[in-house]
Design a protein around this nucleic acid. Structure first.
Length: 636
RNA sequence: GCCGACGUAGCUCAGCGGUAGAGCAGCGGUUUCGUAAACCGCAGGUCGCGGGUUCAAUUCCCGCCGUCGGCUCCA
């Protein structure tokens, strides 16, 4: 066998992954929970027999892959615990997921939060017993019969979904007291699950289909050790503190009200942030050859029939009747931009034509899916449509990737994942057009040296897309930017340009957004920064605090000078104690606090304090002005 | 939309079949203070909305609306 590090080992015929690990060291043997053979993606059971001349990656409990095995085993243990508490429960599925695991069960008893500690107690007993996870091959048809007899419909259905000749395996623990249909792998024994928590209850449809019965889903998580579990739980708690809905209220940025469900009201501070972001994008547009337009809000429904939105998107649209004409509020800007394009006969010399629009969009979202700023019914995107010749696609996408990297870097989103989404079921356009578009995007990504994952069937109805997903400070993923290629709308709206040879040709449309929606981006930014926006974005950049009434005159002079220089300044001349005013400024996440007391009045200076807790010492008025202008210039 | 939980003062939360409470914020006053909360007082609520049960409902039941956690969907 060959090991990951390239070393080779000889083992007797029939040796398993674990034997191999044992032969290297006793501790490695014990830590082994599975393995990979010949670089295959699946993790195999540690009992898997090795064939001759294979290469093996040993998966140990403390690795990332091992964690997946631990979590999967924890989900079995949780299922066992629930069956002990409610013997009539029917098990559906229980996989390991990103941050833990879940198990879907069908149970007459409504599980309540009070039940969770009971489930944990049962699980602890099962783990303390430390019984082996045994793997057994079973006869598919016999097991389907057995499951049907017990009315174990979910397992029966799962097995029926497997091919006739599939190898069907069960995993047992507790000496056979619990068994479950499962491909595995699992840890050697229940005692390997050393740190777990049962977290919450949710509803979930069987097989994710809302036509099916709703099951009860119990979420939990497990880690290699207690310390990692604690860290994870602490991160969840920190995320709760940074929740943009909570900070949005505390910082006076925005609020929501039932009079307009899922439609945020932006307060003056939130609006400042909103406008500053837009202003930044406009600066970027100026450098990249974009032209901004303003387009209507409500259109005759005929437009949406023509664009394909009515057929493919009407469930997400708002309709209204005006002068007996049926109209729809725009959910996207693209059809309007085809009209902008078509106002003139276009020459190839004008292309690429880049049309940007901060138009307000409305999309009807089902009541259960809306959330804070991240999923709303009215929003605006940093939207633009690029009308280009087919051979300009590559260079436009390359330039877009550059813009995207620049913008995300500015907000310190350092990790970026890229997804290429292909043709969905509901779509318009010919196979040939789709193939060309998908290949075009893939090529452009490759040309830019970008690693990407393909999401089959996840494209927009008019074209394939590239999505850009960033990781925030708490390692949560958010989709921001998108680039969508569209050969269909230009056809539907019969757009053309005159080529160099005098022939009329069809342009391609590139739909693109970098921040995504401004609303959602603000929500993400609040959580990413915990409300500590960079100086250039902060709604209130500086707060000036007087120590006593005698200092108000000089403090006012400082405030006026800064305000005149364009710095967003507030004053706190209330009769509270200095400590209390400092505290208020901190809680408001104001980047700079200038304290003015007797000494400062005398020297005509200010005492500068920078968030989070840096004393910048005493500075002259001109020095702080220079500092702030510098920060603004550098977008720091 | 579906499953579950929740909805009490501007905010965070307590209470509970018998006239609704705290802290913070707000307002008035005292204090003029040097880097994370001075002190005293006042005011603030048809207990989400509608119906039902009851002598009596914020409390129990039903419906609706909204919020939260998920499912599905998605910028």
């Amino acid at each position: 066998m060959t090991l990951r590090d390239g070393s080779r080992r000889e083992l007797p015929q029939g040796a398993t992954i674990r034997d191999l690990a044992q032969s290297i060291g006793k501790r490695l043997g014990e830590a082994t929970v599975g393995g990979r053979i010949d670089g295959a993606p699946e993790i195999l059971d540690f009992r898997t027999q090795l064939s001759r001349n294979c290469s093996v990656d040993v998966v140990t409990a403390d690795s990332k892959d091992g964690l997946e095995v631990i979590r999967h085993s924890a989900s079995h243990i949780m299922a066992d615990a629930m069956l002990r508490l409610w013997p009539d429960a029917k098990l559906a599925i229980g996989p390991a997921i990103e941050d833990g695991f879940y198990y879907d069960i069908d149970l007459a008893h409504r599980i309540t939060p009070e039940d969770l500690p009971r489930i944990e107690e049962e699980m602890a007993k099962i783990i303390a017993a430390n019984t082996a996870f045994e793997r057994c091959r079973v006869d598919r048809n016999a097991e389907i019969g057995r499951a049907r007899e017990r009315a174990d419909v979910y397992k029966a259905e799962l097995m029926e979904g497997l091919p006739e000749d599939a190898e069907v395996t069960f995993y047992r623990h507790g000496g056979g007291s619990f068994e479950d249909l499962c491909r595995g792998p699992h840890v050697p024994s229940t005692g390997y699950v050393k740190a777990f928590k049962v977290q919450r209850i949710a509803g979930a449809y069987w097989r994710g289909d809302e036509k099916n019965r709703m099951l009860q889903r119990i979420y939990g998580t497990a880690f290699f050790n207690k310390k990692e579990l604690e860290e994870h739980l602490a991160r969840i708690e920190e995320a709760g503190k940074r929740d943009h809905r909570k900070l949005g209220r505390e910082l006076g940025l925005f609020f929501l009200d039932p009079v307009a469900p899922a439609s945020p009201f932006f307060l003056p501070k939130g609006t400042q942030l909103y406008n500053r972001l837009q202003q930044h994008m406009r600066e970027l547009y100026r450098r990249h050859g974009y032209q901004e337009v303003i387009t209507p809000q409500v259109f005759d429904v005929e437009l949406w029939h023509r664009s394909g939105h009515y057929a493919n998107y009407k469930d997400n649209m708002f309709f209204t009747t005006v002068d007996e004409r049926e109209c729809a509020v725009k959910p996207m800007n693209c059809p309007a931009h085809t009209f902008i394009y078509a106002t003139e006969k276009r020459s190839y010399r004008e292309l690429p034509l880049r049309i940007a629009d901060f138009g307000r969009l409305h999309r009807y979202e089902r009541s259960g899916v809306t959330s804070g700023l991240t999923r709303v019914r009215t929003f605006c995107q940093d939207d633009a449509h690029i009308f280009a010749t087919p051979d300009q696609i590559q260079s436009e996408i390359t330039s877009l990737i550059g813009m995207i990297r620049e913008v995300y870097g500015l907000f310190q989103f350092t990790e970026m994942k890229v997804f290429l989404s292909t043709r969905p079921e509901n779509s318009v356009g010919s196979d040939e057009i789709w193939e060309r578009a998908e290949a075009g995007l893939a090529e452009a990504l490759k040309a830019n040296g970008i690693n990407f994952t393909v999401n089959v069937g996840d494209g927009a109805f008019y074209g394939p897309k590239i999505d850009f997903v960033v990781s925030d400070a708490l390692r949560r993923d958010w989709q921001l930017g998108t680039i969508q290629l569209d050969f269909t709308l230009p056809e539907r709206f019969d757009l053309g340009f005159v080529a160099a040879d005098g022939s009329t040709q069809r342009p391609v449309m590139i739909h693109r957004a970098i921040l995504g929606s401004i609303e959602r981006f603000i929500g993400i930014l609040i959580e990413h920064t915990g409300g500590n926006f960079p100086f250039w974005l902060a709604p209130e950049q500086v707060r000036i605090i007087s120590i006593a009434d005698a200092h108000v005159a000089w403090a006012t002079e400082v405030a006026s000078a800064l305000a005149a220089a364009g710095v967003r300044t507030n004053t706190d001349f209330s009769n509270a104690k200095t400590g209390a005013k400092i505290r208020d400024a901190r809680l408001a996440r104001v980047p700079f606090t200038l304290v003015v007391g007797g000494r400062e009045c005398e020297d005509r200076t200010v005492a500068v304090r920078e968030r989070p807790d840096v004393d910048r010492g005493v500075m002259s008025l001109s020095a702080v002005q220079e500092l702030f202008l510098e920060l603004e210039r550098n977008k720091a």
